[in-house]
């Protein structure tokens, strides 16, 4: 056990949120760098996202003529949502922190959905066709992926008898059988596909594309500028990191979290977590480079695959041994 003074749980909770807020652009930058290397380019500096954000915050805000207050409020609401979710999930600690139980997996899902909804609404406020296209597509595919998320939640509930992310992670840590059990593996795989979809990765979307016709998530921010765009970009990076947290610390590798409240343990957990996040990000970058994007109308096949995995997880649990 690492030493150091005992930290106040509230302080650790604040640290969790700060970890996400501060390091999200860094993780995005590192992944973008690795991705460029995989493609044989030198790539941007890893700190580039911070420079971008700083630049955007300095610029003026342009609001389209017909857009109302929703256009301005949308990005802010989304950002606040992304600030809330890290409190509910095990970012740094293996034990729950204050306010950690104020929402379960469904609660976290709702808050993330609210964020997506407000961004889509803000985009729909404008008269710009691509922004509206993006928001309608994002909501459509969001609705299609929703059943998979529900069945993943059921799986967690059947495995742990709760619907709290901390417990699923604890169950996986507790025994080897729980990691190897097909329900766990299937749910993890299904969630992996959900993350692929929600972070706008291939095969659903080409995240670095400038081609508007193929865009889904990216198209929504086309009309925003200045600090609002900065908030949206930052929020997107945080959302990505939050989803990585759930994937890593709940399903795939819930090891290396702080077990005690000592400052040493908690502080060491930060680089370990960042390392795992970059690892997952690298995996996504490799997938990005190895597969091609699905045609828009074929994306339902991808959704069907995620749904299949999630439902199978519940079905094998029904059989009693999954």
């Amino acid at each position: 056990m690492l030493g150091g003074p005992e930290l106040n749980p509230t302080a650790i909770q604040v640290l969790q949120v700060l970890t996400i807020v501060v390091f999200a652009p860094l993780v995005s930058g590192v992944i973008a760098h690795i991705e460029a290397r995989l493609q044989g380019r030198r790539g941007p500096r890893v700190l580039q996202p911070y420079y971008d954000l700083a630049k955007l915050f300095r610029k003026e805000t342009l609001v389209p003529e017909d857009a109302g207050w929703v256009f301005v409020l949308g990005p802010v609401v989304a950002f606040v949502c992304y600030l809330t979710v890290p409190m509910l999930i095990p970012v740094l600690t293996a034990y729950p922190l204050p306010l950690g139980y104020m929402g379960d997996i469904l609660g976290g899902g709702f808050i993330l959905a609210l964020a997506g909804f407000s961004v889509a609404l803000a985009a729909a406020e404008t008269d710009a066709p691509y922004a509206q296209l993006g928001s309608s597509r994002a909501m459509t595919f969001g609705a299609l992926i929703e059943p998979s998320i529900l069945f993943i939640t059921f799986t967690v509930a059947l495995v742990t008898a709760t619907d709290l992310p901390y417990f699923e992670a604890a169950a996986a840590r507790a025994s080897l059988g729980d990691v190897l059990r097909p329900a766990h593996l299937l749910a993890a795989l299904a969630f992996f596909l959900v993350v692929l979809n929600d972070t706008g990765r291939i095969p659903v979307e080409t995240h670095a594309s400038t081609l508007e016709l193929g865009m889904i998530d990216e198209a929504r921010t086309l009309e925003h500028s200045g600090p609002l765009l900065a908030l949206l970009r930052w929020g997107a990076a945080m959302k990505q990191l939050v989803l990585y947290v759930i994937l890593i610390n709940v399903f795939a590798a819930p090891w290396g979290l702080a077990g005690t409240r000592s400052a040493g343990a908690v502080l060491v957990a930060i680089p370990i977590f960042l390392g795992k996040a970059v690892g997952v990000g690298t995996l996504f970058a490799v997938i990005d480079n190895s597969f091609s994007k699905l045609r828009l109308f074929k994306i339902t096949e991808f959704m069907a695959a995620a749904f299949l995995l999630a439902v199978l997880a519940v079905l094998v649990l029904f059989l009693g041994g999954g």
């Binding site: 059947l158 008898a161 507790a174 025994s175 080897l176 059988g177 729980d178 990691v179 190897l180 059990r181």
Partner: peptide, 10 residues
């Protein structure tokens, strides 16, 4: 909570 299978069974 469903019973945890043994590593062999899992």
């Amino acid at each position: 909570a469903t019973a945890v299978p043994s590593p062999y069974a899992a």
